[in-house]
């Protein structure tokens, strides 16, 4: 399981990377916004995408839309981990096809719960 972590703050990427490692996911790659994430995704081999929303360059919501619009990437599960908490934003993300939405600051338990849920649903399909 190879996971791409996208966040413009290296501290947050590191936190998510460490939490994922605790959950048994050791294979992670990082990108600092949508523009740098897309080529990594398009190169193939990414099984799961964890992305922030508010980033310079390409924002997380646009990355999500780009992933869903790309035939090869469309089914990649996407977890949004963000400080954006407006109702319109959460609804927009849901409609764009996000698989989970975690608000910052978050706990290790929340991250685990959302990831578990995403994979439960995928396994059920």
């Amino acid at each position: 399981m190879k996971i791409l972590i996208v966040d413009d703050f290296s501290t947050m990427r590191r936190i998510i990377k460490n939490l994922l490692r605790d959950l048994g996911f050791n294979n992670t790659v990082e990108a600092d916004d949508g523009l740098t994430a897309l080529p990594i995704l398009q190169a193939g081999g990414i099984d799961f995408l964890v992305t922030d929303w508010n980033m310079p360059g390409m924002q997380g919501i646009d990355l999500l839309k780009a992933v869903r619009a790309d035939e090869k990437l469309a089914t990649t599960p996407v977890l949004m981990v963000t400080a954006e908490t407006k109702r319109e934003q959460i609804i927009t993300a849901a409609q764009a096809g996000v698989n989970g939405y975690v608000v910052k600051p978050f706990t290790a338990a929340t991250l685990k719960e959302k990831i578990d849920k995403i994979f439960e649903r995928i396994d059920a399909q």
């Binding site: 929303w53 508010n54 980033m55 924002q59 919501i61 400080a83 954006e84 908490t85 407006k86 109702r87 319109e88 934003q89 959460i90 927009t92 975690v102 608000v103 910052k104 978050f106 929340t110």
Partner: peptide, 20 residues
């Protein structure tokens, strides 16, 4: 849906969710 970062006074704004 413009990205705004963390909401400073989330409890005063009904359009903003407060927690997970």
């Amino acid at each position: 849906i413009k990205a705004e970062g963390p909401q400073i006074n989330a409890s005063d704004n009904p359009n903003v969710v407060n927690d997970q």
